[in-house]
Amino acid sequence: MSAREVQITFDAHDPGAQAEFWAVALRYVLQPPPDGFDTWDAALDAWGVPPEARNDRSAIVDPDGAGPRVFFQKVPEGKVAKNKLHLDVRAAAGVPPEGRMAVLEEACEQLLALGASRFQRFEPGEELGSGFIVMQDPEGNEFCLD
């Protein structure tokens, strides 16, 4: 029996903005419109989706087709507690230990410029890890750069 495909879903106030942020963070792309449509607006027009509902959903995909689809859905309520699940963004995978934290800091700066917040830096050897940075996306969802 083969493994099941997984989609990661985020609840969001602004699905489009969250999709843009996470596309950069994960090196993904916005999901292209379905076959037969040149743009998402053309597809949404054909499906009768009113303009005020066009930011209710968004998705990003791995351009190489290897990673899971990430879906963002609009919800009315805000985030009220710490995530019970978070993503570890492997920004320094394969980087030798001596250059690891510099690579993570560079990725951190890029994401800060897109609206992320930095929470805490853990040095190599702390928390039994090889060094990582805890951050929050623009809507407050925790994630780690490692």
Rank of each mutant, 00 (worst) to 15 (best):
P76E: 14
P138Y: 00
S2V: 13
R54T: 00
G67V: 04
T9P: 04
R118E: 11
Q73Y: 12
N55F: 02
P51M: 01
Q120S: 04
E139H: 11
P97F: 02
L104F: 05
L145V: 02
K82R: 12
P34T: 03
A116H: 09
L128Y: 13
Q73D: 11
P96A: 14
V6I: 10
K79P: 02
E52G: 01
L26Y: 02
E126W: 00
R69Y: 01
A19E: 02
L87C: 01
F37N: 08
R100K: 11
S117F: 06
E5C: 03
G129F: 00
D56V: 13
P76I: 07
D56I: 08
N141E: 05
F71T: 09
I60M: 08
G115E: 03
E105G: 13
L30C: 07
A81N: 01
L128R: 15
F72Y: 07
A102G: 02
G48K: 07
N83T: 08
P97K: 07
F71N: 13
Q18M: 14
V75E: 09
A92Y: 06
L145W: 06
P51H: 10
L85S: 12
L87W: 11
G48H: 03
Q110R: 15
A91G: 09
Q120C: 04
D137A: 10
W40N: 09
N55V: 00
V80A: 07
L85Q: 11
Q31L: 05
L111F: 01
V6S: 02
P96R: 15
D45N: 15
A107Y: 02
D45I: 09
V49L: 08
Q136S: 07
L30K: 15
Q18H: 03
Y28R: 01
L85A: 14
D38C: 12
A59Y: 09
E109R: 13
F122Q: 13
P63G: 07
S2T: 15
Q73R: 13
G36D: 04
G115M: 03
P50A: 03
A93R: 08
E109G: 08
F132L: 11
E106F: 04
D11E: 13
N83E: 15
K82Y: 10
L128I: 13
P34G: 07
E126Y: 03
D88P: 05
D88A: 11
